[in-house]
């Protein structure tokens, strides 16, 4: 994916090799680095947002309902969210289980 994008001729490179599409890293699905995945039990969740703010990979996003939505495309499975959830609402499970 990345490689195909990069194969531009020098004449088509932006001035100074700049990247003009902000946030284009979203094309890189870092979710495939993961061996474990956090699973949230919404019954326990108090919508505090710790999982959202403590995630280094910006995996959770706030929703209207007040819960936080997990995006498997980018979660690297570090487990910080599970450890920091004050209600132990998040558990890490092995991928494929």
């Amino acid at each position: 994916m990345a490689k195909v994008d990069a194969l531009v001729g020098w004449r088509n490179l932006e001035i100074g090799c700049a990247i003009t599409e902000p946030g284009s890293s979203r094309k890189l699905k870092t979710g495939d680095w993961r061996s474990q995945r956090p699973v949230t039990d919404r019954d326990k969740c108090i919508k505090c947002g710790m999982c959202w703010i403590y995630c280094p990979d910006i995996v959770y996003s706030p929703t209207k309902s007040g819960y936080f939505k997990w995006d498997g495309n980018y979660c690297k499975g570090c487990g910080i969210c599970a450890r920091e959830c004050p209600k132990d609402a998040i558990t890490m499970v092995m991928e494929g289980e």
């Binding site: 490689k3 990069a6 194969l7 531009v8 490179l13 932006e14 100074g16 090799c17 700049a18 990247i19 003009t20 902000p22």
Partner: peptide, 11 residues
């Protein structure tokens, strides 16, 4: 814009 990105071997 992002100026001065890492120049991977492809570029």
């Amino acid at each position: 814009v992002t100026m001065g990105p890492v120049g991977m071997p492809e570029v």
